[in-house]
Computed example of a mutant assay.
Amino acid sequence: MNIASIEEIMGQLQHMSVIVLALMIVEWGILIVTNYVERKKEGVVSIVSYLLQSIPYFLLSKVLIVGTMFLLYENRFFDIGFQWYMWILGYILYDFTVFFVHYLGHSVRFLWCIHGVHHTAEDMNLTVVARGSIFDIFLTPFNFIWLPILGFHPFMIFVIEPIARLYATLTHINEKVIGKEKWLDKILITPSIHRVHHAKNHIYLDRNYGETFSIWDRIFKTFQKELDNEKIMYGIMHDKLNSESFSDVQFLMWKELWVDVKNAPTFSDKIKYVFMPPGWNHMDGGIMAKEYRDKARLERS
């Protein structure tokens, strides 16, 4: 495989966003007609969020993303070719990076204000894929922008990344369409496994960070299967956030972070509010996801 053939593949992948958007709208329409979607405005908020978050990518991607990637490639550590096994290695490294960045998105509060937007939906369907923060450009590019320094040509990444995103899109499909696939769970992030990730049930909190492979969650002990007797409740642990309100979805968590930082008694506490996990507070340390999970497991046992 050479640069010319890779460019041809990239050209074909450019239509993927349109295909994904079409799939979202079709599934959403079917779910509305069958009265399975309870919050019909959520899909509108998700798609509007997608359109707005695309603007900074459109305006800045060639400078901030593509330019940086080619600069890193010019100073690469290794000369990596286009052999088939290098494509596999590139995909694996990309997937691990997504796992790591995703973990940080749940573990650092100001990053959660960006990534948490994706979790605000209380119905699960393909439109949830479009539900992202308008500040997403400051987080998601780190999934892949560094790979050229290792020797992976940016064009390889521009093929790997949309293929991985397409797979990630399908993991958001509604449970009425695809149920559990227990035999696939051992290798891949299936829709069932990813539904757990979107749950606000205490026992499911902050589990299953992988995008394609479930191996990372198993290695780092963040894996949780969907339990037969624990119905998934989607969304985030927030009593005041309206998942059908664009302003709530995009800005409420930022407003609350600002209030906490402003009211923190010491400079050290102000910094901690920014970088500690969601749930932390300066008074008693707060209750974070692990404590909720441990208590839920104890109650089940």
Score class of each variant (00 low, 15 high):
229 N>E: 14
86 M>S: 08
189 I>G: 07
109 R>W: 06
212 T>H: 04
61 S>Y: 09
41 K>M: 12
113 C>R: 03
129 V>C: 06
40 K>W: 11
223 F>Y: 09
46 S>Y: 01
33 V>P: 02
150 L>D: 01
188 L>S: 07
40 K>R: 15
128 V>K: 01
194 H>K: 10
124 M>Q: 08
80 I>Q: 00
192 S>T: 01
106 H>K: 02
146 W>K: 01
258 W>N: 10
116 G>V: 09
186 K>C: 08
235 G>K: 07
174 N>R: 03
165 R>A: 14
199 A>N: 00
29 G>K: 09
17 S>F: 08
183 W>N: 06
164 A>K: 10
21 L>N: 12
83 Q>G: 13
76 R>N: 10
185 D>S: 00
289 A>L: 01
124 M>L: 15
237 M>E: 11
298 L>M: 13
102 H>W: 08
130 A>Y: 03
112 W>V: 03
225 K>P: 15
224 Q>I: 03
106 H>D: 00
96 F>E: 02
207 R>A: 09
175 E>Q: 12
108 V>S: 09
137 I>H: 03
119 H>C: 06
275 F>C: 12
231 K>P: 01
66 V>E: 13
299 E>S: 12
285 G>S: 05
102 H>F: 06
299 E>A: 12
182 K>L: 10
186 K>I: 02
60 L>A: 13
28 W>H: 13
206 D>V: 03
222 T>H: 05
270 K>F: 05
70 F>V: 04
163 I>F: 04
286 G>F: 03
158 F>P: 00
276 M>K: 14
149 I>P: 01
129 V>K: 08
198 H>Q: 03
214 S>P: 04
174 N>C: 04
282 H>C: 14
5 S>H: 07
286 G>C: 14
76 R>K: 14
23 L>I: 09
273 Y>W: 11
142 F>E: 01
284 D>V: 11
241 L>A: 04
248 D>I: 01
267 F>D: 05
97 T>G: 02
112 W>Q: 02
274 V>N: 05
188 L>K: 07
77 F>W: 11
265 P>G: 09
128 V>Y: 06
42 E>G: 04
218 R>K: 15
234 Y>C: 02
